[in-house]
Computed example of a mutant assay.
Amino acid sequence: MQTTEISLLVLLAVAFVVYRQFRTRPTGRLGVLYTAGAMIAGGVIMGGLLDPVHPVLGLALFAVEALGAVALGVWRATTVRVWLDGSGATWAKGTGWTLVAWVASIAVRLGLYVAGQWLGLAPSAGGILIFVGLTIGVQAYLVARRGRALIAMNERPDTVER
């Protein structure tokens, strides 16, 4: 597949993930982590992550992209509402801030793509897959972790005597 085709498929996957984030869902389901892992693995397998003409510059841009993906995933995770229902199950749903964070994530990715082009680096579909896989995976992991923390806090006996 060409970079354009992969970019369109990734865009569809991101649209689906964003859509699901605005629906109430249990935090314990980790299917999106498998999807994120598959995207990262696919990006590595596709290769082309480093420009052979400018390997140091390509590595630097890749590092910025990876750090940016993680940071944006952390930010989006903090914008998701996570709560415990009466039966002890945890749920999550995106907020308006989650949408703002997604728009910022897309803008950052496009900005990094343009910066790479401006620097003369060859575009990499594998890089796109890794960025999206990292950012989605980090967000999903942190939301699930927040859900587990709510359950643990609810199960912990009250240590304060009255």
Rank of each mutant, 00 (worst) to 15 (best):
T3A: 08
T4E: 12
I6M: 14
S7Y: 13
L8N: 11
L8H: 14
L11K: 03
L12Q: 06
A13N: 06
R20G: 07
R20T: 11
Q21S: 10
R23G: 09
R23W: 05
T24S: 11
T27R: 01
G31H: 13
V32N: 04
L33I: 13
M39S: 04
V44I: 13
G47P: 00
G47K: 03
G48Q: 05
D51R: 00
D51L: 00
P52H: 05
H54L: 06
H54N: 09
P55K: 00
V56W: 09
G58Y: 00
L59M: 05
A60W: 02
V64N: 00
L67V: 03
V70G: 04
V74N: 06
V74A: 07
W75A: 07
R76P: 00
A77G: 04
A77R: 11
T79F: 07
R81S: 04
W83G: 09
L84Y: 08
L84C: 12
L84F: 11
D85P: 15
G88F: 09
G88E: 09
A89S: 15
T90Y: 06
A92W: 08
W97N: 12
L99Y: 07
V103L: 11
S105G: 15
A107K: 06
L110N: 14
Y113L: 09
A115S: 07
A115Y: 08
A122M: 14
L129R: 02
I130P: 00
F131T: 11
F131G: 03
V132M: 02
L134A: 10
T135S: 15
G137M: 02
G137I: 01
Q139P: 09
Q139A: 13
A140K: 02
L142S: 06
L142Y: 04
V143T: 07
R146A: 14
G147W: 07
L150C: 05
M153T: 14
P157I: 15
V160Y: 07
R162K: 13
R162Y: 10
